[in-house]
Amino acid sequence: MGVSNTPSILLSRPVRLTFVILICSVVSWLLMRSFAYHWQWETIPKWTIVIKRGLITTLIFSVASVFFASIIGTLLSLLSISKIPIVRDIYAVFIEVVRNTPLLVQILIGYFVIGSVFNLSAIVAGIAALSIFTSAYIAEIIRGGIESVDKGQREAAYTLGMSSAQTTWLIVMPQAIRISLPSLTGQLVSTIKDSSLLSVIAVQELTLATQQAISNSAASFEFWIMNAILYFVICFPLSRLVGLMEKRMKARVS
């Protein structure tokens, strides 16, 4: 039938993606024009300093939260492999409570309840809430990593005379963390997006900065679109990195 095995240039992925983006842009542009709205994109540059500060705050909060959450999560994951049943139960309860209540509520409780008792600033309460929330997910990621380490590794360490703690820290954890790296990077993407909720307790991150710009300029459409684009520009490359890391890891295993 004359069908070539090599896909036509018109069907290659970059071409398809460009096409999709082009169509979406045209449709959005037509939609935007049809709104009875006076577009004033030119106001955005006036707010560069505020937005930039918000963006930096978002990044600092996200990286700090993932950093603390990695430490807490790693320690938590150790509870999940404890030989003592009650310790494993404590782990399970913590994970279920954190994962089955909204982050927004956790942030509000962290600031208005726990924060007011211990007199915490929004910054401390915010990082703490985000860290604890994220730590539950990281603990589960690392637990998965630990479980995927072959049990022969523990047996070999045991027969060499290593203690249980030595086996965990020198043999199992390094492998578990390596296996978990793509998922941990993925968690950073989630945390960057989740950090937008900190705006409710007046942390000056990207989303709150956007709101401030809007309330002073009345250009809400423009700033919200810009806000979404900024999150996307940060998160998208990180998400691609996750895919790349997974691919590399698969290549190493096989």
Partner: peptide, 8 residues
């Protein structure tokens, strides 16, 4: 061990 169990 049969499968060596070296630390990769």
């Amino acid at each position: 061990f049969q499968h060596f169990n070296l630390f990769p």
